[in-house]
Amino acid sequence: MTKKTTGSGANPVEARYYDRLPDKKIRCRLCPHECRVADLERGSCGVRENRDGTYYTLVYGNPCSMNVDPIEKKPMFHFHPGETAFSLATAGCNFVCRFCQNWEISQKRPEQVKSVPLSPDQAIDAALRSGCRVVAHTYTEPVVFYEYMLACAEAGKKRGVTNIMISNGFIQKDPMIELCRHLGAVKIDLKAFTDKFYREQCAGRLQPVLDTLVLICRQKVWLEIVVLVIPTLNDSDKEIEQMSDWIVKELGPDVPLHFSRFHPTFQIRNIPPTPPQTLMQARKIAMDRGVKFVYVGNLISDAEHTYCPHCGKTVISRVMYSIDKSGLAGNRCRHCQTIIPGVFS
């Protein structure tokens, strides 16, 4: 069942995508957890609550984090490079990643963090006031504030502001299709390429994320993928090979792939930061397997630049969040006129 949302600010708003069950229970249909939730209980995300048999989102219009970030920080390298994104998040996540860098908001309930009322229209106002033509739903897991993100995307569309989602991709098909109609781009964190990792390190599952990646591509929404490489947990050559092969086969070679450096945090503090050579090795494997645009993140290196896959020259150079796109003419390599896939201003 889908329901229209009403209201804004800190008031609970009826959630979309859930089924009513006997005894005032509900089954959430937003993410693949499909939580069955009894009256006055919440789903795994901690931000959706059953009240007398009606399911509510408690975070609609209630962001707990807002910042203006370079879009490269998402990271998003082929989508309006050099733009800034008005970035917002509410509390909550449908995963429990043991390496989460934002656990202080993602693993909390809305009442456990400081939030401010901000309706979708006000979010677009704030973005425009900040000089941003992009709103990024990020930091925590936007799937859990689906209704708010969707309303922001709809409001932004009317006013020339593009909305993007930075997500774990753990969402069901129908809500994702609806969302794709309104989003400009999506970045998915592919946490690893084994179900074991997803289950043991994230309290999630791999296959639904792969399904989402394919779905986004088919919906023709710009997609980039990030893999946080954690020593000993998801950094084997074999796993990177399998992942790269799958990406090329199912998504195509043009989807940018970012290998990011892990730093100890939250529940994983006993593993050292990823060695640079591990990231470079992962990049080499992915490129050898046919992925055309492979980057290394959280590390200053030449692997931050975009190279033309035809002539090999630099089309966009980056040092952290500072960029030079003089090698790009429109959406083509200035040197050989090859089209560089992406959405370029």
């Binding site: 939580c35 795994s44 995300c45 429990v96 909390k108 309930r109 309290a203």
Partner: peptide, 9 residues
């Protein structure tokens, strides 16, 4: 605990 919703799997 603050996050009981995470432990029903």
């Amino acid at each position: 605990i603050h996050n009981p919703n995470k432990y029903h799997g």
